[in-house]
Design a protein around this nucleic acid. Structure first.
Lengths: 154, 154
DNA sequence: TCCCTGGGTTGGAAAATCCAATGCACGGCT
DNA sequence: AGCCGTGCATTGGATTTTCCAACCCAGGGA
């Protein structure tokens, strides 16, 4: 897998968006992170049509982002929980939320309390040197022949 | 503005996705960060239909994520550049790329070189205490009446 | 003159989304 | 037993997005 679409640039961002880029997918994940794990509650909170939610949940389970956990036998009832891979999408939501807070909201509707005691203001740092990453400090290096900044070779 | 949709949870993630959640929007931003600023090149590299790209660019400009910069008069030709707000979406793409690299790709198609000399592995840290943020260290606090983990009040 | 590039717009077909109604398996009540 | 409520979907048809090829316009170059 992981062949990026058509004639477009091979890219992990595109691959990731193929999994979580469809409408509601990230909002479903948000609910799971908030502790909401059941179909009806997710549907209500996200505002998604039920058939679409069915499709999204199936896709996320197939992609290994969520897993169904039996919480009641007879009738079989499952809740949706984040896998390890799903948990690793948390930073994406955190940064998206931060951006919305800073640029769209007057008052942040939700705040995350960090264990250090203060409200979380997430920052990206470089694991190697530990410094905060600013945009000037970073340059792309393309690993696939034909795809540089200019785009496809011919 | 910033009234979240319908009956769904008020949330900056949803607000952010209303701007950059439509198909191709984040890929357009990726190209801009890669240094690709012109309509045709963006269209080729993201693989988007031209009319859709037109719509996305307009939306991103209207939302203050991109701006049109005149690079040629007569005929008037513009390129698309990230505003300050747009630049602040870079962390979202970085974390999305990291996730794709780790969970979908065999070989990362692109690598970012950090100024410290090593390839960038981005980590989220708390600005207050400087520590890396793990999922257990963080708990949501809801600021809007009626919307907790359980969802809408009635 | 004719062709090429950059940056779109248009019209109709195909796909995705929306929404209300339905189905089905249980559990609890009476 | 009959009826209601919850949990979790699936279906059918209307609406909205996306797709794609064709077209348009302005300038530049041969």
């Amino acid at each position: 897998m992981t062949t990026s679409q058509k004639n477009s640039r091979p890219c992990s961002i595109a691959d990731a968006l193929a999994v979580v880029g469809e409408k509601y997918a990230l909002l479903v994940l948000r609910e799971v992170f908030f502790g909401v794990h059941r179909f009806d509650a997710i549907a209500r909170n996200v505002g998604a049509p039920r058939d679409i939610l069915t499709a999204r949940l199936r896709r996320l389970v197939d992609a290994g982002v969520l897993e169904k956990v039996l919480y009641n036998e007879r009738p079989a009832r499952y809740e949706y929980r984040a896998t390890e891979a799903g948990q690793e999408l948390r930073p994406v939501l955190l940064m998206l939320m931060r951006w919305g807070d800073r640029h769209l909201a007057d008052v942040p509707p939700t705040v995350w309390r960090h264990s250090c005691g203060s409200d979380l203001d997430p920052v990206i740092t470089c694991r190697a040197c530990g410094d905060e990453v600013h945009r000037r400090d970073v340059t792309p290096r393309f690993q696939v022949e034909g795809w540089s900044a200019e785009g496809s070779a011919h």
